[in-house]
């Protein structure tokens, strides 16, 4: 995953922001504990959200305590620990997906990138093996997703088909960890649109680069390389996905981290979309925080 799902910090309460950071640090700690120190390199915001969703759906009791940062021993931070499987699961997703992404880069990146991916893979190998042993299903799903993604790119398919593998993967992961009593359909649809949104954001982010390098990008065909015009359209596509995602989100039974998750879903998504679709192409960057997302559903 890539780190597009983030809270809009300016609108979070301080306590919630600290809690969010503690989950981030807790995930980092859990990664190095369960799969080896090197695996904490793969830490991402998206996996933090996944861990929080896991804990929220399961209502896992967790505690926060002070500790040393895993990566930088001089730094002190608040670290979240929880009883259940949440942090280990999210960690495994992080390691396994990074591993497969590196494999993909090794196959079709540039020469320098290929070499870097090759060495990183040797570096991460042991960690990946440990994650694989614990969660073989995640690996199976991810491998299938990668295969379908490559096939889709080869055939130069439309937006829906291109986004489908990633969306299906996240949907399956969400169904995998949700508690018995959760409605499979709701969590499945939620996961599907989260995955779709992440994929489309990534496509948006890479559009300029992909046009230059003549790589596959689902948005490329629409305006024949006019990036600015495409961005308006990208935003529309993202909006519709966000609307679907929110509809499913509102049907979920959440117990913990509600304030943070709400912030990510209602404000974080908005800000990220603005950042990647418009701000990047505006020479004069508008740095206003008096911006409030217009939501008539969430009053």
């Amino acid at each position: 995953m890539f780190g597009y799902l983030q809270p809009f910090r300016e609108e979070l309460k301080m306590k919630d922001y600290k809690l969010y950071k503690s989950v981030y640090c807790g995930l980092c700690r859990s990664l190095s504990k369960s799969y080896g120190l090197k695996s904490s390199l793969t830490l991402s915001y998206d996996c933090t959200v996944l861990a929080m969703l896991y804990m929220s759906l399961h209502d896992t009791p967790c505690s926060v305590k002070k500790g040393k940062c895993t990566v930088n021993p001089l730094k002190k931070c608040m670290i979240c620990t929880c009883e259940g499987d949440a942090l280990r699961f999210a960690g495994a997703v992080s390691v396994i997906m990074s591993w497969h992404k590196l494999k993909d880069t090794m196959n079709d990146g540039g020469l320098f990138k290929k070499a870097a991916a090759f060495f990183l893979r040797i570096f991460l190998r042991g960690n990946y093996k440990r994650a694989l042993r614990n969660y073989p299903l995640i690996d199976e799903y991810t491998a299938e997703m990668m295969k379908q993604q490559n096939e889709a790119e080869k055939n130069d398919v439309g937006i829906d088909r291109a986004a489908d593998p990633t969306a299906t993967l996240i949907s399956r992961l969400c169904i995998m960890f949700c508690p018995e009593k959760t409605d499979r359909k709701t969590i499945g649809v939620f996961g599907y649109h989260v995955g779709r949104w992440i994929y489309l954001m990534d496509a948006c982010d890479d559009l300029e680069k992909d046009i230059k390098k003549k790589n596959f990008n689902p948005f490329k065909k629409k305006y024949n390389g006019d990036v600015k015009a495409t961005m308006q359209y990208c935003n529309e596509v993202l909006n519709m996905t966000a609307a679907q995602l929110i509809m499913a989100y509102e049907l979920l039974d959440l117990h913990r981290y509600k304030a943070i998750l709400d912030n990510i879903i209602y404000n974080g998504i908005t800000i990220q979309q603005k950042k990647y679709t418009f701000d990047r192409y505006n020479k004069k960057k508008t740095k206003d925080i008096d911006y409030y997302p217009a939501m008539d559903v969430h009053e």
Binding site: Q232, N235, E236, V237, L238, N239, M240, T241, A242, A243, Q244, L245, I246, M247, I265, Y266, I269, T270, I271, Q273, K274, T277, F278, P293, A294, M295, D296, V297
Partner: peptide
Amino acid sequence: QQRSGTQGGFVSTRSGA
């Protein structure tokens, strides 16, 4: 309506709701 961003996402025009 969903595409406009009022149901989630980002409204690109800077007018009120």
